[in-house]
């Protein structure tokens, strides 16, 4: 149980051990630990940032989608309006055209009617003259009654 030179030997061993630990064991290990800690912290920060970015992107996507929907709705509305306009326009055009066609037809009818009347009148007057001529051949001298005949013929033409 006595204290002896073993003490000195043990102190030397201890000093050597502490020196070795201080020089070759502690620094690389604590360095690795600290470095890994830093790396993990970095990784966690990056992950958080990624998540944040994703949230932002999702928000942006939603906005873009909403805008696109709005735009498409606008376009559809516009197209519908335009179609209505075109329909109205063509309706108007058709009406005008119809009226015009009716007018033309009416004018033609009038014209044809006049022509027919003219022709009829000529024919009637010719017939009347013929008939009158037939009747008068016996009684009226053509030369004596020339004035009268032309006068009647003129009156007929005016009628």
């Amino acid at each position: 149980m006595s204290i002896n030179a073993t003490l000195i030997g043990q102190m030397i061993t201890f000093t050597l051990l502490v020196w070795f630990t201080m020089k070759y064991i502690w620094p690389p290990l604590i360095g690795a630990i600290e470095e890994r800690k830093a790396k993990i912290a970095e990784g966690l920060a990056a992950a958080e940032k990624g998540q944040h970015d994703m949230e932002l992107a999702a928000k942006k996507a939603a906005t873009v989608l909403r805008e696109a929907k709005q735009q498409s709705a606008d376009i559809i509305n516009l197209a519908q309006k335009r179609a209505n306009e075109i329909v109205e326009e063509s309706k108007g055009t058709a009406k005008v055209e119809g009226v015009r066609m009716i007018d033309a037809a009416k004018a033609q009818i009038e014209q044809e009617m006049q022509q027919a009347q003219e022709a009829m009148r000529k024919e009637v007057s010719a017939l009347a003259l013929k008939a009158a001529g037939q009747i008068l051949k016996q009684e009226i001298d053509k030369a004596k009654h020339k004035d009268l005949i032309s006068k009647v013929s003129e009156q007929l033409g005016q009628a």
């Binding site: 204290i3 073993t6 003490l7 000195i8 043990q10 102190m11 061993t13 201890f14």
Partner: peptide, 9 residues
């Protein structure tokens, strides 16, 4: 001796 070697150091 061993324990005192440590503590004296």
């Amino acid at each position: 001796n061993a324990t005192f070697a440590l503590s004296i150091s």
